[in-house]
Amino acid sequence: MFFEVPFVLIISIVACVIVFKIKKIEYIEDKVIPLPELAEMLLLELEKINAMDISLRIDAKQHWDDKFNIYLERKRLDTTKNQHPNLKIRAVK
């Protein structure tokens, strides 16, 4: 009785919070930067990196490259998703 009631109350409060806030939680999960906006951000960042000192530039450029690769991957997936189904089959073949 000493630990049962608090334990059940805590997990039921957690469950209630999930149920009442589920839409908000999912909205935050879904919120991703659109591709054109991301491309602009990356370009601005690259301009800043090019203006940097050579010693700082190497690390920053590596970090930027990683972000750019993620952008390219997202763009590739986006292009494949918007393609006609027949084109997709041909591309796989």
């Binding site: 009785m1 049962e4 059940v8 997990i11 039921s12 957690v14 469950a15 999930i18 149920v19 589920i22």
Partner: peptide, 21 residues
Amino acid sequence: GPDFFYLQWIMYESLTIILCF
């Protein structure tokens, strides 16, 4: 304890919601 009789159903329901989520 026997007091857990109804509380266990609350626990099962909450755990189902948490697990599914």
